[in-house]
């Protein structure tokens, strides 16, 4: 008799497995959440606003990217556009996972999309690739997503509360930028992305004096166009 746990997991066991396989990433998620919480307060948000933003937006990189704009009282539409652009990777994630969710009601799909996180997405993708016939992928996804959300929020709120007692002289707001560096560096290893990153950086630095932080937008778009052109070029000449 084979073990029922390994061959026929129940939905509850799938949830627990989703949680269990996310936990090794706790230090990274925690550090990133903590830094985001601290950075929000260091950028001038008060505790209440920062906690609501953390709970509703649940978007570390978008929150960190928006902070300099909020501090400069940039127009709301620019903050929105920036948050959308920085979040675009989640469009790719949702395109990648949605095939398995087609049978669910639209509002369940919406909430499942809303709670996606970087680390749990990587774990979920690995499960789909290694065990395409796993019986309860949605339960596994939910376990990982909820665990990811809870770890992140605890760390973020801890950072928000602790920020008040951390002296400005520590320069801790740099840690928010370093968290973005940690996400960015592994993406630069592929060639067209690296070229796009280089162009985006140079254009953003040169365009720094443009009003409304438009240098950032210009940098992003130039980088994307260059990366896409470089990627398409060999295909066209084939």
């Amino acid at each position: 008799m084979s073990s029922p746990n390994s061959t026929h997991p129940t939905p509850a066991e799938a949830v627990r497995r989703g949680i269990r396989e996310l936990l090794p990433a706790t230090p990274g998620i925690f550090a990133w959440g903590l830094v985001t919480g601290v950075a929000m307060v260091k950028a001038g948000l008060d505790t209440g606003h920062a906690i609501v933003l953390s709970l509703l937006a649940y978007a570390g990189s978008a929150q960190l990217a928006a902070l300099p704009l909020i501090a400069a009282v940039a127009p709301v539409w620019l903050v929105f556009v920036t948050a959308v652009v920085v979040n675009l990777r989640f469009v790719v994630y949702s395109a990648a996972v949605r095939a398995g969710f087609a049978h669910l009601h639209w509002h369940r799909r919406m909430w499942l999309g809303y709670v996606v996180g970087d680390i749990m997405f990587v774990r979920f993708s690995a499960l789909r690739q290694n065990e395409p016939d796993y019986p309860h992928p949605v339960s596994y996804y939910l376990g990982g997503a909820v665990a990811n959300w809870i770890i992140w929020q605890i760390a973020s709120i801890l950072g928000i509360v602790a920020a008040a007692v951390i002296p400005d002289s520590w320069g801790l707001e740099l840690a928010g930028t370093l968290a973005l560096v940690a996400l960015l560096a592994p993406l630069c290893v592929r060639f067209p992305t690296f070229a796009g990153v280089a162009v985006a950086s140079i254009v953003a630095i040169l365009g720094h004096s443009l009003p409304l932080k438009l240098g950032l937008l210009l940098g992003m778009i130039s980088g994307m166009v260059v990366a896409l052109l470089l990627e398409r070029r060999p295909e066209a000449s084939r």
Binding site: S61, L64, A65, P68, T82, V85, V86, N87, L88, R89, V91, V92, A95, T177, L180, V181, L183, L184, L187, C188, P192, T193, G196, V197, A198, V199, A200, S201, I202, V203, A204, I205, H208, G215, L216, L217, G219, M220, I221, S222, G223, M224, V225, A227, L228, E231, R232
Partner: peptide, 19 residues
């Protein structure tokens, strides 16, 4: 879809570089 793949890296690069 192809250009979306580069968006997060380019957005973060612009922010990190100017910061």
């Amino acid at each position: 879809e192809a250009s979306l793949r580069f968006a997060p890296a380019c957005a973060m690069a612009a922010i990190v570089a100017s910061d």
